[in-house]
């Protein structure tokens, strides 16, 4: 019994900051620029959301969507064939071990350490201040993650299914598209959701490689809001909630996948 009360109590405690954000987004300024500890608004208002709508700031959400979709597409298109090759083929001279070791180092490396030359690469390619440039930069985080995660999923697909198809004379591409990909679907979806969340929340590269405010992703925009005015908390909370809803919904969907990622890390 104590256990249940403690579990629910801790859970409630950890949700107070989120509750504060929801409530503040609905409060008129007089209620949050105050010393009151009342969480719930007395006089709820949608004014902050209206300001975001009218000023077109919601469009920045589209930037985040475009970058997330691009990052997911590229990391799966490059990551799935790579994971398949690593899982299914004998590669010479322990190439797979070397390659996975390299992927691991990149996965753990601090992004800021590569940011300076990356800035110069993107500038040389004319991709600075473009979403395509940000999508490419995001691959540093997304591709190692996608390969690492998909590798576990590909290994779980029994090779015997493919052998049976081979006896039926199916070519490699047909096998991959008609047998492997459908069986991998749950793994592909889970990987896509994780990469999308990662891209959605990414801040450093967006800060460094995007300069035009109208091209900002949501985290970059929120950073400017934080520093613009110390107590514009209503608008900030409304923006924060808009930026958080998609990922909070996604967590409900992939909670099992989260545990799965952890067990993949254990391989």
């Amino acid at each position: 019994m104590i256990r249940i009360v403690a579990a629910f109590g801790l859970c409630a405690l950890s949700l107070i900051p989120l509750l504060w954000m929801v409530a503040t987004s609905l409060k008129p300024p007089a209620e949050y620029v105050s010393t009151s500890i009342a969480l719930w608004p007395q006089d709820p208002t949608l004014a902050h959301y209206r300001v975001l709508l009218d000023s077109g700031m919601w469009r920045l959400g589209l930037n985040s969507v475009v970058v997330a979709l691009g990052t997911v597409a590229l990391s799966l298109l490059a990551g799935l064939p790579a994971a398949y090759a690593l899982a299914r083929f004998e590669l010479p001279r322990r190439f797979d071990i070397v390659f996975l070791g390299f992927v691991l180092v990149i996965k753990l490396a601090p992004p800021i350490a590569l940011a300076i030359p990356l800035y110069q690469v993107l500038r040389a390619l004319g991709l600075l201040d473009t979403h395509l440039g940000l999508i490419l930069a995001n691959q540093i985080l997304a591709l190692p993650f996608a390969i690492w995660m998909l590798l576990g999923f590909v290994r779980d697909v029994p090779y015997s299914f493919e052998e049976a198809a081979m006896l039926d004379g199916a070519g490699f591409v047909k096998r991959l598209l008609q047998i492997v990909v459908p069986l991998l679907m749950p793994g592909l979806v889970a990987t896509a959701v994780f990469v999308a969340i990662m891209s959605w929340n990414e801040f450093l590269f967006a800060l460094l490689f995007i300069q035009t405010p109208s091209k900002f992703t949501l985290p970059a925009f929120i950073a400017t809001l934080i520093n613009e005015d110390e107590t514009l908390w209503g608008r900030l909370s409304a923006m924060g909630l808009i930026a958080s809803l998609p990922v909070l919904l996604a967590v409900g969907l992939v909670r099992r996948g989260l545990t799965r990622e952890v067990s993949v890390d254990q391989h």
Partner: peptide, 18 residues
């Protein structure tokens, strides 16, 4: 368990704003 995971998936910038 699902609710406990919420802070972990938020954007660090949203967390920082709060």
């Amino acid at each position: 368990m699902t609710l406990l995971l919420a802070p972990f998936v938020l954007s660090t910038m949203v967390v920082t704003a709060i």
